[in-house]
Design a protein around this nucleic acid. Sequence first.
DNA 1: TGATGACGATAACATTTGTTATCAAATTAA
DNA 2: TTAATTTGATAACAAATGTTATCGTCATCA
Lengths: 191, 191
Amino acid sequence: MFEQFKDKFNLDERKWNEYLSCFHRMEVASKTTLLAEGKVSKKMFVIEKGCIRAWLNNNGKDITAQFFFEGESVGSIESFMKNIPSPITIETIEPSILWMINKTDLDRMLSEIKEIPHLRDMFINKIFERTFDYMKYFFSSIRDTPQQRYLDLIKDRPQIVKRVPQHYIASYLGITTVHLSRIKSKLAKGD
Amino acid sequence: MFEQFKDKFNLDERKWNEYLSCFHRMEVASKTTLLAEGKVSKKMFVIEKGCIRAWLNNNGKDITAQFFFEGESVGSIESFMKNIPSPITIETIEPSILWMINKTDLDRMLSEIKEIPHLRDMFINKIFERTFDYMKYFFSSIRDTPQQRYLDLIKDRPQIVKRVPQHYIASYLGITTVHLSRIKSKLAKGD
DNA sequence: TGATGACGATAACATTTGTTATCAAATTAA
DNA sequence: TTAATTTGATAACAAATGTTATCGTCATCA
């Protein structure tokens, strides 16, 4: 799972193994809640296999905020960093294999990493990339129609369309399932 | 302008003055373009007085992506960091007093700052805060109605409603000026 | 095996939002 | 100051999107 990062991290064998041992493998069923809204996040997860969504509660209706797939890391960064109640719930969509790391371990790991220039820069770039992603989503949400955003999803994140139930996709696009159904049938008829 | 940060930065007098001298004061008229879409950003600005917007072109129509006021720093971070064409245009709304810094100076400053733990952490926190902001905007855009987002704007960022022409606000909310007008008159009649 | 619930399509109707056009007030430029 | 231009409100109509309800298919589970 983590072998692919070994060269990139370029740590001595001992340190690398120490970091590896912080991650704990776990297998979970679909619809498992990994973090509940309102709880303070003390764990992060890396996905080996499966698919996860983050959602927020809006007077009873759940709004999907984000999807995660193999290789991605998942958690409420805001809750995790600031020690505040999580605004989102994190839940598996498929049965999944995850690698869990505790906040205490990750905090220690990060504070060490921040002293190593090339890893520090990797970390900062990672944060920037996430910022750029959210900017893109926000801009798209005020600029594009739901149909356009659905087409973008098909093009840029085909995984989502293939593996995720449609009502989650609809709420992620900010529309109803009925409307998404209409968009699909309209597209099927040839634009 | 920058005195307020002196304690927080906690640098020796010589370094502090060296950094200060990188910023150049400029006064510009309203509707001045500070960065045009498609150009690679080589400058960042800090606002002493005035108000600025960032917008993107969408087949001729401009969509306002963000507003900036006194004390905030402005630029296309993505263009600036990655040396790519800017996806946005940055333009003053009011006559403004700005402090400009060149990329070469800022790059040098940042690489020095990244070696000083408390400044590095301030920098990383700053990036995280920006990420959390965009997350919030994105979530709100798929969760809330335009009317709710307008009410949030009044509550959270009253500056915008007071100082910014209405058609910019409308495009920032992702709606037309006509619709924003309707929302306002509906609210004026008592919800 | 059968029952149950999750998922998705569709129809009919309601509401929201966009489009175009017109007018008035405020601001800016000549 | 006068003439443009910008800004904002409103009306009438069109298009997009939401709501509620119904139905069929499929997976799950007892």
